[in-house]
Design a protein around this nucleic acid. Structure first.
Lengths: 127, 127
DNA sequence: GTTTGACTTCGAGTGCGCTCGAAGTTCTAT
DNA sequence: ATAGAACTTCGAGCGCACTCGAAGTCAAAC
């Protein structure tokens, strides 16, 4: 059952990815989709499950501050097929290092803020 | 000894805070300093230890994505003096919630990226 | 088959946080 | 005294990632 692949309109895709339709079109036009999005009825976009999956992943890359341009590089590697696996791994590993650094940095900043909070709490408690 | 308060030129302040002189001036002019920076010899800025300490803290706020405008609100509260302690605490606690959310979000994204990395490592190992 | 609303492309606009350059002034070292 | 570096203000410009509006086309529901 369910052998036919289900597809989604742009607004359904927006709903599923948490992006706006504007942003989805922007991502496509700026070269961030693995393949051009299918068009049903000549013009309207039909997003496949794979498109949605990819957009969800690219959202993770964005959420960790990978710049659009870097994501585009990654996409180009994916398009090259299997032979680029090692390059893709390398790109992601490099990105991973920056993410871990970001997390550590943010954690350190949070600690500093917590120190301040503690001081204020003390102050407020004595008033 | 060392009872005289040491002050810093803008380039020394830049060095100590990791910001550029341009950014330090920008922060001052956009209302992010607790008090106007002292001027020695009529025009040149002289940063006090307290200025440096404050800039370091505001850098932590920025590093956790607090917008300039919110920092300005915080600064205005500080200028009001002791009576604003509770408001400042509230502002920081509210910010804290967003920071914790950011950290969790980033951590989740990192996990998704790690899954992909594991897949690629598997693939590369078999080649 | 017509209406309603979702879709299309295109290019321009926005918001944020810097970042920079120009043109002039002041400090420091000799 | 003077050269050169470091400082000053001011306003404009930039880079990134969207975000939006206009004007037109298409499609699903009745």
């Amino acid at each position: 059952m369910e052998t036919l692949e289900h597809t989604f309109s742009i607004s359904e895709a927006a709903e599923r990815t948490g992006l706006t339709t504007h942003t989805l079109r922007y991502y496509e036009r700026t070269g961030l989709m693995l393949t051009p999005v299918d068009r049903a009825s000549s013009t309207h976009r039909r997003f496949t499950e794979q498109d949605i999956t990819w957009v969800s992943f690219l959202t993770k890359l964005r959420a960790t501050s990978m710049p659009i341009a870097r994501i585009r590089e990654y996409v180009e590697l994916v398009r090259e097929g299997d032979e680029s696996t090692a390059s893709r791994l390398e790109l992601l590993l490099r990105h991973r290092i920056t993410v871990v650094a970001q997390l550590a940095d943010m954690q350190r900043s949070l600690t500093a803020i917590d120190v301040k909070i503690a001081i204020y709490e003390e102050k407020v408690a004595h008033a």
